[in-house]
Design a protein around this nucleic acid. Structure first.
Lengths: 199, 199
DNA sequence: GTCTATACGTAGATAGAC
DNA sequence: GTCTATCTACGTATAGAC
């Protein structure tokens, strides 16, 4: 199974009750947003009483932080795995295809990752911001490599980096399964991104 | 003053107290989100007590709806004004430049327009959805015109329409004034969008 | 049209039994 | 580790005086 279609795996979250709370919180936060989600809603999705949540997590925000941190790490891993080998064109195409498909395939957690940052504490936000900068750095580097070997023509590297990432990130906003196959979308976006930078 | 830099004007909202509530709500909803914003916060931004809000608006949701409706109409107007004349390339560039610059210049209301749809009642959502479809139709048409006269090469017109709009819409998520001039950003994005479709 | 006071519901989180 | 019961705070919205 390729990185593009790898599922998110939650076996490392133990015990099972903590895992049910986490996955229930992802669904609830993605559907309704962090602020509109109640601890009662999360607990009932996990089949338990509101009080039981606090045995596993000290607060609703902590649940969000664990989701956000894990989601950011997963997105960075997918991007790096897809952009390691080949020419700048191959790496850019691989990165955009994989990062886009990840946002479609995992649009629930991607929505939490991309749209609930403001609900994190400043300390927790700083921690995920490190990962966000690493994501940007990967794209910026492949564009620089393509400019260096003259396979890309890029007028504004920081602006183009932001645009390429932005295109993939916004998938989390609008994607639903009826809008098509994540891998096909990734292929389209890889092509559009390459067109943005080709000589 | 061009459509790209035209300010949003609120003189039509009367009396002044209703206007202060509306603009205060835009700032609050953009900063914190609809759910996290309290009627007390909106009222205090307008310099009045929580109860006074209900003289002007029957609910917090109604305030959101009026903001969302007006914002959607403004965005559609800007898109249409910029995409009326010229070749498909000129129209596409004009539309992307103007729509992008609008999302940067008016990123507060744009954030409400793009990210608070889920907080509208089903009836109010249906009303703004009409405007959203009109926005998509404008872009889809210019791509079709460019394909028809062979100035564009587009493999997947609906997917590319979505991508072009998505790029501009996502500006509302990340833009802050320190990230540069809205008009310069519009020019960059117009170029990137044209590269996506050129033969 | 704005105020103070308040009704009413529900939120996050805790106490203590089992 | 889960439950029931509950605390305390705060949310939207209303009542009624001025």
């Amino acid at each position: 199974m390729s990185a593009v279609t790898s599922p998110l795996v939650w076996e490392h979250v133990q015990p099972a009750a903590a895992r049910r709370l986490l996955t229930g919180a992802i669904d609830a936060f993605a559907e309704r947003g962090f602020q509109a989600t109640t601890t009662r809603d999360i607990a009932s999705r996990a089949g338990m009483s509101p009080a039981a949540l606090y045995v596993h997590y000290p607060s609703k925000e902590r649940l969000l932080f664990e989701i956000s941190l894990y989601g950011h790490r997963a997105a960075l891993d997918v991007l790096r795995a897809a952009g390691t080998d080949g020419s700048p064109e191959e790496r850019l195409r691989g990165m955009v295809a994989a990062f886009t498909a990840w946002h479609a395939e995992h649009h629930t957690i991607a929505r939490v990752v991309q749209y609930e940052l403001a609900a994190l504490t400043p300390e927790h936000l700083a921690e995920v911001a490190v990962i966000r900068r690493a994501i940007s750095a990967e794209v910026e580097q492949v564009l620089a490599d393509g400019v260096a070997d003259a396979s890309f023509a890029v007028d504004d590297p920081p602006g183009t980096t932001l645009a390429v990432l932005s295109l993939a990130i916004d998938v989390a906003r609008w994607y639903t399964p009826h809008r098509g196959d994540p891998v096909a979308l990734g292929a389209l976006y890889a092509d559009l991104a390459h067109r943005m930078v080709q000589t």
